[in-house]
Amino acid sequence: MDFYFGLAQIIGVHTLLGLSAYIVLLTGQVSMAQAGFFAVGAYAAGMLTVLAGWAILPALAASSLLGAAVACAVGFPALRVKGLMLVIATLAFGEAVRLFFFNFDYQVARGGVKLGPLGGEGFRQIRYFPENGWTTMQVMLFIWIFVVLVMAILWWLDRSRYGAVLRAVGEDELAAQSVGINLTAVKVSAMTIGGAIAGLGGGIYAHYTTHIEHASFGILLATFALAYPILGGLGSVFGTVVAAIFVQGFLVEGLRFLGDWRNLLFGALIVLAMNLRPKGFLDAPTLRWIRRVFGGKRGAA
């Protein structure tokens, strides 16, 4: 059973990562920086619980705030460029963050043992959960409380006027400006919210793996962050969680019995999925069908 709880933990954290890219994608911005914010959150939360002795909740709040602050600071210069230029700019930022942690040493002796990030060896012994006797199931539930909470907030934001404004900017920046929408404010705020979610996800990730290193936060993770909302569809936050389950649950874990053939099939199945569902798993007709079946009368969103 612990295997499935562990899998659910991975899916939960990856869903958070995907949601952080989702809100930025709504404004039409393709950001490869989400893994960078995730890394910042992971190291910050780990250092707070291990070195500063904080409890998990304040540490996660701090990692989330730090993720938001970094994203806001990156957003102002980065969002002046668009399209492929933005992809390159955010990719460069993500790599800069990764290399920063590759070179980052900050070790403190605790009871004869040196703890803290140690460059390329990473940051070991983030043992808040085991030290406090949490079971795998408890950690899994803890993670999913945050996933559900973040999804609920994003779902609500999506239906608010702010959500419509985000989508308006994503559709046509020129028209959005011409009806009085401040593009900078909208894009930077979306980036900031995305950074907060990625920082939170990173903080949780550091604690359930207990060991983080720079190599985990590379281009592959940044690509996964974008793949979830795109595979799942940008019509609703639920697409992202469906895609995270599909990729992590089915493609990564479910196909393990295939051995070395798995990686080949992995790529092929993603290509197949995108061809069969070009607008994502939960595209507009599917969402309408779900609303009809589950009795939502107002189809306004």
């Binding site: 419509a164 404004v165 989508r167 308006a168 559709e171 046509d172 028209a175 929408i181 306004a300």
Partner: peptide
Amino acid sequence: RLFGQLTAWQNLWVAQN
């Protein structure tokens, strides 16, 4: 230049600035 994937109603909603 409308916001094609928003409804007619939402197009007016986002313009109230």
